[in-house]
């Protein structure tokens, strides 16, 4: 996956050096002539990011590890320029994104419910989380041509999830500290160890919202006549969890960036 980032960044640099040698004009880099003032952009990109509470709660003491999972986006946008600088675009982006994280937490409130049985309290130790999401994002963006070769677009998006996974487990940290205080910080102290980790119940994905709303910001750079290099950010504004899900007390938002190349028609 890292290779894709390097490749994208190298392409960007090559493109930038090419740019220096040419004279740019809005006409030259304008919308391709296929459709009047408009066209299509087919995108392929690498997705990296995470689903996170914002700001990070004080219970999170240390991020020990982070690994992206999945990380592919395929999409097509249609755009239409109304003036030399302003236009709109709308698209359909299929994605598969996710991550694995390993964090040390202190006094992290957990509330687990399985078939009517409830375990709750304050956990201190290592918390491992894995999540994957796949679905489609439908952005509707306003586009500004900042320069002949640079476009910046921003606007809302709607994501529909076809599938989601959310799993994890808790155990002791590197210092051997791992326990749940049942109900309150003065409740029974129940030890947890890596040899016998306690997994999250498997009903977490059922508690996830099937849709999300957010803001997308996209930067497109026209590297060649038909080739764009782009970076875009999908910033989720809605909590991934059902409102009545008590296991996680803070709201979590999906924030994923996509880097890639696009064919512009």
């Amino acid at each position: 996956m890292k290779r894709i980032i390097y490749l994208t960044i190298s392409l960007l640099f090559i493109a930038l050096s090419v740019q220096a040698q040419e004279e740019d004009s809005f006409e030259k880099w304008g919308p391709t002539t296929g459709l009047k003032g408009g066209g299509f952009i087919a995108r392929v990109g690498y997705v990296i990011g995470g689903t996170t509470p914002l700001p990070l709660p004080a219970e999170v003491r240390k991020i020990n590890g982070f690994k992206p999972r999945g990380g592919i986006s395929l999409g097509i946008d249609g755009y239409k320029m109304f003036t030399k600088r302003w236009g709109v675009s709308a698209g359909v982006h299929f994605f598969w994104e996710g991550f694995h994280t390993d964090a040390d937490v202190k006094n992290y409130y957990v509330w687990l419910e399985q078939e009517g049985e409830i375990t709750k309290g304050y956990f201190t130790g290592t918390n491992v989380t894995n999540t994957e999401l796949w679905g489609v994002t439908l952005p509707l963006l306003a586009t500004l041509r900042m320069s002949p070769r640079w476009n910046v677009s921003a606007g809302p998006y709607l994501s529909l999830y076809f599938g989601q996974t959310f799993s994890g487990e808790v155990y002791d940290n590197k210092d051997g500290v791992g326990y749940l205080r049942e109900d309150t910080p003065v409740g029974t102290k129940i030890l947890m160890t890596k040899e016998n980790p306690t997994p999250y119940p498997d009903n977490f994905p059922d508690k996830m919202q099937p849709v999300a709303l957010g803001i997308e910001i996209a930067f497109d750079w026209k590297a060649m006549k038909h080739l764009n290099v782009f970076g875009l950010l999908d910033w989720g504004m809605t909590d991934i969890w059902d409102r009545n899900f008590e296991a996680i007390t803070f709201k979590m938002y999906p924030i994923y960036a996509t880097l890639g190349v696009a064919y512009r028609y």
Partner: peptide
């Protein structure tokens, strides 16, 4: 312009690694 694209990658990672001050013990 390069910086703005890099920021797209770096900002979420920075946000993700922004650890707040440890709260006092409750036990």
């Amino acid at each position: 312009k390069k910086a703005s694209i890099l920021a797209l990658v770096v900002v979420p990672i920075l946000l993700g690694s922004c650890i707040r001050t440890e709260e006092e013990n409750t036990e």
